[in-house]
């Protein structure tokens, strides 16, 4: 019969849990020290993109494309090949209705 001691169960749990806790706290501290202000719209636009990270748009991933849109480098939303009309419309509507921190509105074509 297979016998499992309590110790054999608890030790790995505590070791991994402890490591996770330490590393997590370290990261939380680092995140606080290394915080950067970013335009809140970028995150929202990235959320509205299809999220395949396929790179068809010419950026290395959706995050890059989203940033490009908000910063005005992207000329056409349809560069994102997997995107559908509904995605493009949602992004255009969102950008139209939300001015940036400097009060300007980003314009993009479909």
């Amino acid at each position: 019969m297979l016998t499992i001691t309590l110790e054999a169960l608890i030790v790995p749990l505590f070791v991994l849990g402890g490591m996770g806790l330490l590393l997590g706290l370290g990261l939380a501290y680092a995140a606080d020290v290394l915080k950067v202000e970013i335009d809140a719209r970028i995150e929202k636009v990235i959320e509205l993109l299809p999220g395949f990270n396929c790179g068809a748009c010419g950026y290395p991933g959706c995050a890059g494309f989203g940033e490009g849109i908000v910063e005005g480098e992207v000329e056409q939303l349809s560069l994102c090949k997997p995107g559908k009309d509904s995605d493009y419309n949602a992004i255009m509507e969102y950008l139209k209705s939300t001015p940036g921190p400097d009060g300007k509105i980003v314009e993009v074509k479909k």
């Binding site: 680092a30 915080k35 959706c62 890059g64």
Partner: peptide
């Protein structure tokens, strides 16, 4: 345990790059 350490380190690198080298952060992407 190793994956835990590696994942945390990568997070740290990501934060550092985002803070100090935006262009590199962008070109590395996903």
């Amino acid at each position: 345990a190793f994956i835990l350490v590696i994942a945390s380190l990568v997070q740290l690198v990501e934060m550092i790059l985002k803070k100090f080298s935006k262009p590199l952060y962008k070109s590395l992407g996903i």
